[in-house]
Design a protein around this nucleic acid. Structure first.
Lengths: 155, 155
DNA sequence: GCAGTCTGCGCAATAATTTTGCATTATCGA
DNA sequence: TCGATAATGCAAAATTATTGCGCAGACTGC
């Protein structure tokens, strides 16, 4: 919650790119002792800046060959509680991201599925059947140029 | 590259949710010995299924209060090489994701910035100034419901 | 300006975790 | 069924992370 100093930023910068850096390697990269790196990481986790550790997987290797964006509009009134309007969808593991957005549609979803048949299936079983859906538009990704880029860490 | 068996899938399932699980804890979760988990993880990295390890950070804590989607069209002909058309953008660390998509626009970008002033600044310095841009549309996220959800691991 | 306190630091010892050698068991193809 | 290959668990070894401690710089209140 407090400010991040130069060392915190360097640590986050390095760990975002490779979270499995050894404390010794990290220490060298950020110019601090391993023990202090350890303590700072612990503090960053404690304070919630670091929320967790994840894996970067190869979607193809998992058979997820199709990425698509689904734009969704719901009945007026349902947007009083956006999370509730799409709660069902958030639990599906085809849904990677979900945001409420400005513009013609209410939500944008990023989904990853095996193939177009799966996409079609997901749309009909999970999306179309949602209560209060007003409009759906789908755009398929033909090419993935960048995914999950590291967040900009300032100062 | 080869098929993932039941244990590989369980391991990926568990590690996606918490990549810092101890081998002992993982072993218990997937019903395998720690040593075997270690070996299978090594193999998954070797074969490219696991591409790396990352951090889940709190964007707010980093001062990234605005997430936006930018839809981009470029001059016909530039889409012969999509990556080249937006190469400049991919290097910017405001750009989290970038896909070439079907539909009216050629690309969708997810960007994260400090505030709307920053967004405006990014648009004018990084996007508008790109050569061959035909159209830009921006939609701001008002609410983030799900981000970076774990990938579905089958069988 | 000065004591007192607090915070951050590196070193070294300790604790925890990961990796590997090895003997055994399971699996698959012929 | 047999032989070869691959997978497994255990235990030892190696690597890595954590913590206690003394020290130094910064800030506070007087």
């Amino acid at each position: 919650m407090e400010n991040l100093d130069r060392f915190d930023c360097r640590i986050l910068h390095a760990l975002q790119r490779d979270a499995r850096l050894t404390l010794a390697a990290l220490a060298e990269a950020v110019n601090l002792s391993p023990s202090q790196c350890s303590r700072r990481i612990a503090r960053l986790e404690e304070s919630g800046v670091i929320r967790g550790h994840g894996l970067r997987l190869d979607p193809e290797a998992l058979g997820l060959k199709v990425t698509a964006f689904i734009f969704l509009s719901v009945d007026k009134g349902r947007m009083a509680c956006p999370r509730e309007a799409v709660a069902e969808l958030l639990t599906r593991d085809e849904v990677i991201d979900c945001h409420a957005i400005t513009g013609n549609h209410d939500f944008i979803l990023k989904v990853m599925v095996e193939d177009l048949a799966d996409l079609s299936n997901f749309l009909s079983t999970a999306v179309t059947s949602l209560p209060g859906i007003r409009d759906i538009a789908t755009q398929v990704a033909m090419n993935t140029l960048k995914v999950g880029g590291p967040l900009k860490v300032m100062a």
